[in-house]
């Protein structure tokens, strides 16, 4: 178990970072198309759609890099933010599925011919949340080690 766990955490870090670093590229390249994808969730007031489209991909980039290569405290913060974002994305995709909106999730591609969201997006996000939480807990344990009680 002790040999498997570090390897699992490393794989989790690589997987989560690769997915978010890959996900931010198309959004940074074409913020207008990403704004349209954000609008299609109909969760945010219109005033905030463009601001989210401008900033959110950079949060994905910074937190992805933090999970991959930062010291433990920053890595824990990055993993926590990613897990929170994934939870929000999952709720948003679920809402569109319930409402019958045949839209792409806007996760990796902003193209009009990107695959339409379905239940697999929720399964994938669930797995990513689990990996991000595993990275978070490991990083917290390293950043803030429990001090042994002092002997009287």
């Amino acid at each position: 178990m002790n040999r498997v766990r570090p390897a699992f955490i490393w794989l989790a870090r690589l997987a989560v970072a690769a997915i978010f670093l890959g996900a931010c590229v198309a959004k940074i390249q074409d913020p207008a198309a990403f704004a349209l994808a954000v609008n299609r969730y109909r969760i945010l007031p219109g005033e905030f759609v463009n601001l989210v489209a401008i900033v959110l991909p950079w949060i994905e980039l910074a937190t992805g890099l933090a999970v991959l290569a930062a010291p433990a405290r920053l890595r824990a913060a990055g993993a926590a933010i990613l897990a929170a974002m994934l939870a929000v994305f999952t709720i948003a995709i679920s809402l569109n599925l319930v409402r019958g909106i045949e839209a792409s999730c806007g996760c990796f591609s902003t193209r009009a011919d990107a695959a339409v969201s379905d239940g697999w997006n929720l399964v994938r996000n669930g797995a990513l949340i689990w990996l991000a939480l595993a990275v978070y807990l490991d990083a917290v344990r390293r950043a803030f080690p429990r001090r042994a009680p002092e002997a009287p």
């Binding site: 401008i54 900033v55 950079w58 980039l61 910074a62 920053l74 913060a77 917290v140 950043a143 803030f144």
Partner: peptide, 28 residues
Amino acid sequence: ASALRRGDALRLAGAGAALLAVSAALGL
């Protein structure tokens, strides 16, 4: 492992705020 002392939680929140601030600065 997730039960943080108050000081540690503040340090973690600070790191998160720094990440978000850097992201926003880069985006802008």
